[in-house]
């Protein structure tokens, strides 16, 4: 496929990249732009490790064609701890023991981020639904759910 210029806003900065618009946003982020925080676990939209925010919505970057980002805001895990301090969601993940191997964590944090943007006080069922597209094999999700509930409390303050 012919390459095209794709322009979008990445973590608050304007970027212009020449790429195959049908290649995945995930490979654009990881292989071209060096943002390795977004993980790749299956390449089929089944594990959620590559979750990023596209105009505030959680999406699987492996399923989004790079060209789809044109003119939109893309937010990755790297944006959450800019300036060196942890985002309240990240703090809560650490404090609640929600991080084991950590491979699902960036995607899980981004799904939580999207949820708390749209629903600042989610119940346990909303939390479960919001992360149901993010597979974690280590944790049984319990401490992740506790962390997201705690993060909601932190963000309220």
């Amino acid at each position: 496929m012919d390459k095209q210029v794709v322009s979008f806003n990445l973590n608050g900065e304007a970027v212009r990249v020449r790429c195959d618009p049908f290649s995945s946003l995930l490979s654009l982020l990881r292989d071209r732009l060096g943002l390795l925080g977004t993980k790749a676990g299956c390449g089929r939209g089944e594990c959620g490790a590559c979750t990023v925010l596209l105009d505030g919505l959680a999406v699987n970057a492996c399923l989004v064609p790079a060209g789809k980002a044109e003119g939109l805001n893309v937010e990755t895990i790297e944006n959450l701890s800019r300036g060196g301090s942890l985002h309240p969601i990240q703090e809560a993940f650490v404090e609640k023991g929600a991080v084991q191997c950590g491979f699902c964590t960036p995607g899980m944090v981004m799904s939580a981020h999207a949820l708390l943007k749209s629903d600042p006080a989610p119940g346990r069922e909303e939390i479960r639904k919001a992360i149901s597209g993010n597979l974690c094999r280590c944790s049984g999700y319990v401490q992740i759910e506790e962390a997201i509930a705690a993060a909601a409390d932190k963000l309220k303050d």
């Binding site: 390795l36 925080g37 977004t38 993980k39 790749a40 990755t76 895990i77 790297e78 959450l80 701890s81 942890l86 990240q90 993940f93 650490v94 404090e95 991080v99 191997c101 950590g102 491979f103 964590t105 960036p106 944090v109």
Partner: peptide
């Protein structure tokens, strides 16, 4: 007390084999 590596993992800075 948290293993320091947790910070790298939660910020996306931990480097795995695929990275």
């Amino acid at each position: 007390f948290y293993d320091p590596e947790v910070w790298a993992k939660v910020t996306g800075r931990a480097r795995y084999g695929i990275d």
